[in-house]
Computed example of a mutant assay.
Amino acid sequence: MTDTSPKRPRGTMPAPAPTDTAKTYWDGFHQSVRTPADWVARPNPLLVDEVSGLQAGTALDLGCGAGGDAIWLAQNGWRVTAVDVSAAVLAKAATAAARAGVGDRIDWQEHDLTRSLPAGTFGLVTAQYLHSPIAGAAEREAVFASAATTVAPGGTFLVISHVGFPTWLSEQPPDYLTDQLVPNSVILDWVRATPGTWTVDVDKVVTRDSTGPAGETGTADDAVLRIRRLH
């Protein structure tokens, strides 16, 4: 039988199987990642740059993954609700948070963001690299629109996303990956960030260093969008 599934360049996310749901895809992805027992995920430096000047309060971390951002936020005075669809990665993140001494400051919750979000509103809502080959554009739009409703008046919505592939990537990525790259202007439309309700504090593209799975070096472009709800 000929394998007609999309081929992925080395170092990128795998293609979803026809039977995959968001939960099965991300559980499988995270279960395949082997890490040392004492490993703790590091925060995104771009998040650190953008959040360091904000007054700590309540934070919602969407698609928290291994918990690097949530742990850093908790260490810096925030009370965090951290959400992911993968129970496998939430368990790893909770263990890392306990080891870091901030387990009591983070509420880990399992949600498929296309179906549910934590209750309440938050002073900071953050979505770091919320890319998923299991979700189409309409589903992603719905997720960002719903996420925006969880930002409290005066609160901040911080979105950091890939807008280009690393320069060390030599193969053309398949459509299921390229479809995930959208500029901040599209996210602003998804969020319905109308003037008078929201103000844009940061809208930029940052070129950062990037290292491939075999030690390849290069750069990659990330978009940073930080908006504030006025009322």
Rank of each mutant, 00 (worst) to 15 (best):
P43Y: 06
A41T: 01
R42Q: 14
P14S: 08
G57V: 09
P45L: 03
G11Y: 01
W39Q: 06
G63T: 07
S52Y: 07
C64I: 08
E50Y: 06
G57N: 09
W26Q: 09
R8K: 11
A70P: 04
D38G: 07
W72V: 06
S52A: 14
A59V: 12
T21Q: 09
A59F: 11
K23F: 07
P43I: 02
L54H: 08
K7Q: 15
I71R: 04
D27K: 07
E50G: 00
G65D: 10
L73C: 09
W39R: 06
D38N: 15
A74H: 11
P9T: 05
L60Q: 00
R42P: 08
P9M: 01
A74F: 12
V51P: 13
D27S: 05
G68C: 09
L46D: 11
G53N: 11
A41L: 04
F29L: 14
W39V: 06
D38M: 07
S52I: 14
S32D: 15
T58C: 05
L46H: 08
L60R: 01
G28F: 12
T21H: 06
L62E: 10
L54I: 13
P6K: 04
W39S: 11
K23P: 04
R10Y: 14
M13A: 14
A59R: 01
A70W: 00
D61W: 05
P6R: 00
I71D: 07
G57E: 10
A15H: 02
Q31H: 07
D69H: 00
P45G: 10
A15C: 08
T19V: 09
L60S: 02
I71E: 04
P45A: 02
G28E: 13
W72K: 03
F29E: 13
A74M: 10
W72I: 07
F29Y: 15
H30R: 04
A15F: 01
D27E: 11
Q55T: 15
W39L: 02
I71M: 08
Q55D: 14
A66P: 15
L73K: 05
P45M: 06
D20S: 08
F29W: 14
W72L: 01
G57L: 09
R8D: 15
D61N: 03
A59C: 09
P45Y: 06
V33A: 12
G11Q: 01
P36V: 04
P18I: 10
E50F: 01
A70D: 11
P43T: 08
G28I: 12
L54P: 11
V40A: 13
R42G: 14
M13N: 10
G68P: 03
T58H: 03
W72R: 01
A59N: 06
T19E: 14
D20A: 04
